[in-house]
């Protein structure tokens, strides 16, 4: 028998990883919609999106390693990458495995973003929207104690945030690029007429 803290570690990293993946998705939509967060320039949102996603990937490594070495559930090292080969709840664990496989591809292509065609990267990045539900269902079904309530609450809150963000992302950009310049012109003209300073660029 492995000590129980491994089980706790496994559960905690799983839950936090889901929260961080949700945050990554929301930040990704902020990037895609070219919006800003208070106090952050636009490139800061991009960096935050990347760093939060890498942090969630790191937590997933701990989550996976702890699941494999925990003797309470029987998950072979092979089942980490090959879906539906786990002895313990093959279907729920398999969904998590699929999510991990997708995640590896998304992280690797994002790290190589400058060296691969943008279209390839973007096509693969869209699969993030498949990754999140896989991870969500995995979290609800593979766990051993969902009953206590607060874990379910966190999961449902994440689902709500991810759902809203996804809906926003798929409705597309709110401005046509060709309409941005006239809008900026009107904005600056009225600012100068009021005597407001316009020397600062938008990202401050």
């Amino acid at each position: 028998m492995t000590p129980t803290w491994i089980w706790y570690l496994n559960r905690a990293t799983g839950i936090v990883a889901l929260v961080l993946m949700t945050l990554t998705l929301v930040l990704g939509v902020v990037v895609q919609r070219q919006r800003r967060l208070p106090g952050l320039p636009r490139f800061g949102v991009v960096t935050l999106h990347r760093n939060v996603s890498l942090l969630s990937a790191l937590l997933l490594v701990v989550h996976i390693v702890s699941a494999v070495i925990d003797s309470y559930v029987s998950i072979s090292p092979l089942a980490v990458l090959l879906p539906f080969t786990s002895a313990w709840r093959p279907l729920p664990v398999g969904l998590g495995t699929l999510a991990v496989d997708l995640l590896v591809v998304i992280v690797v292509t994002s790290l190589l973003r400058g060296r691969i065609p943008v279209r390839l990267w973007r096509g693969i990045h869209w699969t993030s929207y498949a990754l999140w539900p896989l991870a969500f269902v995995h979290g609800l079904t593979a766990g051993t104690d969902l009953g206590s309530g607060w874990a379910l609450g966190i999961a449902l809150a994440c689902a709500g945030a991810a759902g809203v963000a996804t809906a926003l992302a798929w409705t597309g950009r709110d401005t046509n690029p060709a309409d941005r310049a006239p809008a900026a012109l009107a904005e600056t003209t009225s600012a100068l007429a009021r005597g407001a300073r316009v020397a600062v660029f938008r990202n401050r």
């Binding site: 941005r180 316009v198 660029f201």
Partner: peptide, 20 residues
């Protein structure tokens, strides 16, 4: 300035300011 394609920051941020 209004005919800027609105794609590149320096053009989108710069030309409307210069024009105004």
């Amino acid at each position: 300035a209004a005919e800027s394609a609105g794609q590149c920051g320096p053009c989108l941020n710069g030309l409307p300011r210069i024009a105004a």
